[in-house]
Nucleic acid binder design. Structure first.
Lengths: 104, 104
DNA sequence: TTTATATATAACCAAACGGTTATATGAAAT
DNA sequence: ATTTCATATAACCGTTTGGTTATATATAAA
């Protein structure tokens, strides 16, 4: 369901993740940190919410966003194990190559 | 220039990265591992090449692909430090909160 | 030399992305 | 009650993504 790869594909969304991880932010806090329009920010927030990496809380006319830490942590761990494999494979391939230098 | 986030956004491209990290593969090896068309695979390879995560080598009618390990490693490290910040921020925020429990 | 195989390219398509402007809604402050 | 401010939504736009089919090209094998 959660696609962290989609969520982090855009630099604006990565910066939003960093912002809300430090401190809960209102939408206008976030809008103020970028030079794009409020609806554009809204769409980025919608993607982050859709991928469940953000939680929102309504207080009067304000909407607060914060990191959904458990989900982010879990998804990030999975990402690391998936991409980590790429480098491990490379090392395994090299190891095999070295072990069989004389035989081939 | 290299945008690893773009490169890894698609699961097919992530699988290609894993494949070529184990062993140099021809394009038809790769095509055979998926159930999409050869031109579709070609486009994924084009994106991975564009982002410099793959190297290609021509041998007669075959085209071999392999991981561009130094670039992948470097970009992956940067990704980790960028995303790692998100969790570190969260911890720092929590620390600050605990330290100031009595004052607020 | 014909045939088969590997790769490349073109044309097309629908859907998603990333932005815009304009406007509506809803809550708070004057 | 009216204005102000935060957020939401609609309509639009150009580009990118991710796929297709059909076809061209280039090398290798029969």
């Amino acid at each position: 369901m959660t696609d962290i790869y989609r969520a982090i594909a855009d630099p604006i969304r990565r910066k939003i993740l960093r912002m809300v991880s430090q401190k809960e932010c209102t939408q206008s806090d976030i809008v103020a940190s970028f030079s794009i329009s409020q609806p554009a920010i809204k769409k980025h927030l919608a993607i982050l919410l859709e991928e469940q990496l953000l939680l929102e809380r309504r207080m009067g006319k304000f909407c607060y966003y914060r990191l959904n830490t458990p989900v982010f942590q879990q998804e990030y761990l999975q990402l690391q194990s998936e991409l980590g494999l790429v480098l491990e494979n490379k090392l395994a391939g090299l190891k095999h190559y070295l072990e069989n230098l004389e035989e081939e």
